[in-house]
Design a protein around this nucleic acid. Structure first.
Lengths: 340, 340
DNA sequence: CAAGAAGGCCAAAGCGCTTTGGAAGACTCT
DNA sequence: AGAGTCTTCCAAAGCGCTTTGGCCTTCTTG
C-alpha cells in the first residue's frame, strides 16, 4: 500500500493525502480525518526510503562505534543504550551504529554526514580538544556530546555529570575523616572525565594543604584486573594510602580483592569510594563491605541525550547548551576514619 | 557530486556510469577505468537513500532491541557487538538498533521488514518456539539466530554454542571428582540456552544414577545479587551442594561472596565452575580462587554472525544451516574433590 | 458588486539512483 | 553481401515520497 494507491482509493491527489498525513494546514479538517482513517484502516506506512530521499530526514540517530581487535567497547555502553532506547522507542527513532576503525573515526563521521544517513549523532568518551567534536561541529549535523571536551575554541552542546564536583566531595569527606594519604584509581586520563575527577580530588586536598602524590594516582582502563594491580601497587608502597577513590565499580572489585589478598580490611585499613554508573547487575550495596559511591545513572543520561537529540532534530533546541548533572555521594560502610 | 553531474562531466549516460561503478559486464573496460578514476578523483559516493529507494538494499543489519524501564540489556551484548562491529566495519555494513517494547517486538519486526529498513536481522536470546523466529522466517528477510529456539516446525539458520555439551562436561567432571550433590545456578530458563545447560547437567548426573534435586536448581537473571542469593539459599540447605555450576561470571561473583559470608571456602567446601563469555573486564583467572570455566567467546560469535549475515544478504549462504560451536572446559583451582 | 483574500485541492517536478528495453556500430559467419 | 551476434552505450521509466506553483471556489470587504 503506497501513497499512490491510497490517494487513488480516496479520490484525492497524492499531494493532499501527503499533506493531510503530515499535518500541513492547507487541508480541510474533514478531509484530513477521512485520510487519516483510511490510512490507519489500510495500515498505510510511508516508505521511509522514499521519504528520506525526498526530505533528507531519516528518523535515525547515529553513533560511530570504535572497533578493532584490540578495542573493547565500554560495558557502560549497554546501560547508556538502555536509556537511549527507552526514549527512542516512544518516538520512533532508530539508532544506527557505524563501526569504524578506532584510529580513524573521521572518515566514518564524514561518510554518515555526507550520505545523510542519520539526522543527528552523539559522541561519547570525549577527550580534550577532541577532533570528533570539532569535526561534527563543522560538518553541521545536529549533535550532542556525552561528557565534555576541553580547550575547544567553540561552544557545543553536551550532557555531562559533575565529575569534578563528585570526586571533590569524595576526597573532602576523606580529608574530614582524617585521611592524609589518598589515592586515585582513575580511568584513562586522556579522557576528560578522568581529568575532571583528578582535578576534583586535587582541589579537595589542596584546600587542606595536602597533595595527591604522583605515585598515588593510576590511570588505566577500567577492568577488574587493572583495579587489582593498581591497588596492590598502591598498598604495597611504604606510604600506602589510607583511602582510595576509584573511578568504577568494576575496578573496585579488583581493589577489594587486592585488599583481601594483602590481609587488610575495608574500612579498617583502607577506606574506599568508587564511582557508580548504576548497573543492574552489580550493585555497590552488595559488596562484601557495602561500597560508598558517587552515583549517577548513565541510563538516565542516555534517555536525556535521546530526548535532546530529538529536540535538536526538530529545531526545538538550538545553540551550545551544556547540561551538567550533579552527582550523589552515597556513604556506606566502606568509609571510616583514618587508622591511627 | 551526484551521478548526473559525474556522467555529464564524463560525457556518458548515467546508465553507463552507474553500471561501470557497480561492476556490470556490459561496459568497456577502458570506459570503466575512466569512470572509476573520475569517481575517485571527485570523491563521488552514490547517495544511499537514492540507491536504497531504487534497489531496496540498505547495507544495514537490523536488531530489535527490547527496551522498557524494567528491561535491562544484557551486558553480554556489548561484547557481542564488538565482534559484530569488527566484521561489519571491514564490509561497510552498519547496524541499526530498533528499540521496541519488550512485550511487543513483533510490531517492530514487521515495521523494519515492511519498510525495508535493513537487509537482514539477527535474533538473540531465543526461547523455545520463539515467535520472533517464526515471524522473521515467514516475513522472508534474511536472518540468523544467535542461540537456538526449539520446537519450531521449520528449520532456520543459527549460530549457537554447545551449551548442553559444556555443562555436561562440567557436571561430569564434578561427578568424577566424587561430588554427589550438585547445584545449578542458571539464567532465565525461559531461554533455550538455560534449558540446554540444565539438560547437560541432568544428563551427566543421570549417567551415574544421580539426580539434580529441584531445590538445587535456580533460574534467575544473571546479576551478582541473584548469584549471591541463590548461593546462600543453596548452601544453607540441609543437603547443601558440594559443587555448583553457574551460568555466568557475574553471578559467580555473587556466589563467591556468599561462600565467603558463610565462612566457607572454595574449593574446600564448595567447588565451582561458571560459564565465561570472555569479557575483557572480568576474568575468571583473576578470581581470588581462580575460577574454572566453560569458555566461549561471545565476541567471536558476533563476528561470525556478521559474516554469515553478509553472506546471506549476498546470496552466498542459503538454507537453514545451523552451526554449533564446541565449548572449552578450563579447569582452574576452584574445582576439587568432594569434601569427605 | 467587483476586487482581493483565503481555503482547499491538484498536476507535475523533483530527490538520485538502478534497470529495462532498445539502438548503433563492429564483428563473425555462411 | 546480407543476416545474425556481440559489444557498448543510451533514453527513459521507475522507486514512493514531498513540495512548488497554480487553479478553482468561496468568503470577505470597501
Amino acid at each position: 500500500m503506497n501513497l499512490k494507491q491510497l490517494s487513488h482509493m480516496l479520490a484525492l491527489s497524492q499531494t493532499t493525502v501527503s499533506r493531510a498525513l503530515n499535518g500541513y494546514p492547507e487541508v480541510n479538517e474533514e478531509t484530513r480525518r477521512r485520510v487519516m482513517d483510511a490510512a490507519k484502516r489500510h495500515g498505510y506506512r510511508p516508505n521511509p526510503s522514499a521519504r528520506r530521499l525526498a526530505t533528507g530526514k531519516t528518523g535515525m540517530i547515529g553513533y560511530v562505534l570504535p572497533t578493532g581487535s584490540a578495542v573493547d567497547i565500554d560495558p557502560h555502553f549497554v546501560e547508556f543504550l538502555s536509556g537511549l532506547g527507552d526514549y527512542a522507542r516512544s518516538h520512533e527513532l532508530d539508532l544506527v551504529l557505524s563501526p569504524a576503525d578506532a584510529d580513524d573515526q573521521e572518515t566514518t563521521y564524514r561518510r554518515i554526514v555526507a550520505n545523510r544517513q542519520v539526522d543527528a549523532v552523539y559522541i561519547s568518551s570525549p577527550r580534550p580538544a577532541d577532533r570528533r567534536v570539532a569535526l561534527v561541529n563543522t560538518l553541521g549535523i545536529p549533535f550532542i556530546v556525552h561528557g565534555r571536551s576541553e580547550g575547544c575554541d567553540f561552544d557545543y552542546p553536551f550532557l555531562d555529570i559533575d565529575n569534578e564536583g563528585a570526586f571533590h566531595e569524595a576526597a573532602r569527606l576523606f580529608v574530614q575523616l582524617g585521611h592524609r594519604r589518598l589515592a586515585l584509581i582513575n580511568g584513562d586520563n586522556r579522557e576528560t572525565f578522568a581529568i575532571h575527577r583528578e582535578r576534583g580530588v586535587r582541589r579537595a586536598l589542596a584546600a587542606s594543604g595536602l597533595l595527591l602524590a604522583e605515585s598515588h594516582v593510576c590511570s588505566i582502563t577500567m577492568t577488574e584486573e587493572n583495579g587489582y594491580r593498581a591497588a596492590r601497587r598502591l598498598l604495597e608502597q611504604s606510604d600506602a594510602p589510607t583511602a582510595i577513590i576509584c573511578s568504577s565499580l568494576i575496578m573496585a572489585l579488583g581493589v577489594v580483592r587486592a585488599v583481601r589478598d594483602l590481609g587488610l580490611t575495608v574500612p579498617g585499613d583502607l577506606s574506599l569510594i568508587a564511582h557508580d554508573d548504576v548497573f543492574p547487575w552489580l550493585k555497590p550495596e552488595n559488596f562484601s563491605v557495602p561500597l560508598s559511591t558517587t552515583r549517577s545513572s548513565i541510563r538516565l543520561a542516555g534517555a536525556r541525550i535521546a530526548e535532546r537529540l530529538a529536540a535538536r532534530i526538530s529545531g526545538l533546541e538550538e545553540g551550545a547548551r551544556g547540561e551538567v548533572w550533579p552527582v550523589d555521594l552515597v556513604v556506606r560502610s566502606s568509609v571510616a576514619g583514618a587508622p591511627a
